[in-house]
């Protein structure tokens, strides 16, 4: 029995890259448990799209958010109770269309959260429109003559926004992806995992990715090197592209405080209010 599965019926297309992401994350959770982080402490969230369905398929607590907002949702969870590990599954349309401001700011403030991007270069659930990461010329129902916009580079963008953990994975390289996920969740700060996710129905990229992916043999030790790897076009390097230790947002905000577990007593609070009023 798969104790990380729910009774929800899986409705992804056969061969969809999302299956690999789901399988990899379950493995990652089991490894995290072995390493001491119980699943009751791992909160998940998701945007709206094919990717978001992972929320229903995972027997983990959390909040199924709205389109493009899951990264704000999990930041709120983390600020309220920093003892929790929080992970959002986002779509490429979701994260870099609706949610781009949240992505940039979460990285900028080094929020201690993990974003797993189901990067399929397409709006899957709404039947195949181009997304912020689709190649120029991409043909979809809203761009029948081909997209006339340049794509965003999620890795470079997140690096530029001061993300402290940036990685790229590919479900076909499952164990490699699992390892990245474990490290991303363990990272204390903003971690971003761009998962190359083929969409067999609207953007089948298996062949292209299989030919282009290349597992990095080391974690680059400079920001400059990370940027140049993120921008490579000839190859699609996989692995941790950048990692930096930096004070996470909630610690900078309130140190070792925890709003829900260290809450001030009512009596103390009232005393302080009375003091403020009599000033």
């Amino acid at each position: 029995m798969d104790d990380l599965a729910t009774y929800a019926e899986n409705t992804w297309c056969l061969g969809c890259g999302n299956f690999g992401i789901l399988g990899a994350f379950k493995k990652a959770v089991r490894i995290l448990e072995e390493k001491g982080t119980g699943r009751e402490k791992i909160m998940i969230s998701a945007g709206i799209g094919c990717h978001g369905k992972i929320f229903d398929y995972l027997k983990l607590s959390g909040l199924y958010s709205i389109h493009g907002r899951s990264m704000a949702t999990i930041q709120g969870m983390k600020i309220a109770n920093p003892d929790l590990k929080v992970v959002a599954f986002a779509g490429d349309g979701d994260a870099f269309g609706e949610g781009i401001a949240h992505m940039i700011f979460a990285a900028k403030r080094n929020a201690d959260i993990t974003i797993i991007l189901h990067d399929n270069g397409v709006y899957g659930l709404t039947t195949g429109q181009f997304t912020p990461t689709s190649e120029k010329g991409f043909k979809g129902p809203s761009t029948p003559k081909g997209s006339i916009e340049e794509p965003l580079n999620p890795l470079a963008l997140m690096l530029e926004a001061k993300a402290t953990f940036v990685a790229r994975g590919y479900p076909v390289k499952l164990d490699h992806l699992v390892d990245i996920m474990v490290q991303a969740v363990e990272h204390q700060g903003f971690s971003f995992v761009d998962v190359l996710q083929p969409c067999v129905s609207f953007n089948n990229t298996y062949k292209r990715y299989n030919a282009l992916v290349e597992i990095l043999d080391h974690v680059p030790d400079s920001y400059q090197e990370a940027i140049s790897i993120a921008k490579r076009q000839d190859k699609l390097p996989l692995g941790i592209i950048y990692k930096e230790e930096k004070l996470p947002y909630h610690k900078a905000l309130y140190g070792d405080w925890n709003p829900v577990t260290k809450r001030m007593s009512k009596e103390e609070r009232i005393k302080r209010i009375e003091a403020l009023l009599s000033r």
């Binding site: 999990i74 930041q75 709120g76 969870m77 600020i79 309220a80 401001a101 949240h102 709003p259 829900v260």
Partner: peptide, 19 residues
């Protein structure tokens, strides 16, 4: 935060965690 949309969604995330 960055805008009112983040404000509201973060707040809901915090309520989920019991704040």
């Amino acid at each position: 935060p960055e805008n009112e949309i983040a404000v509201m969604n973060m707040a809901i995330g915090s309520a989920f965690a019991g704040a």
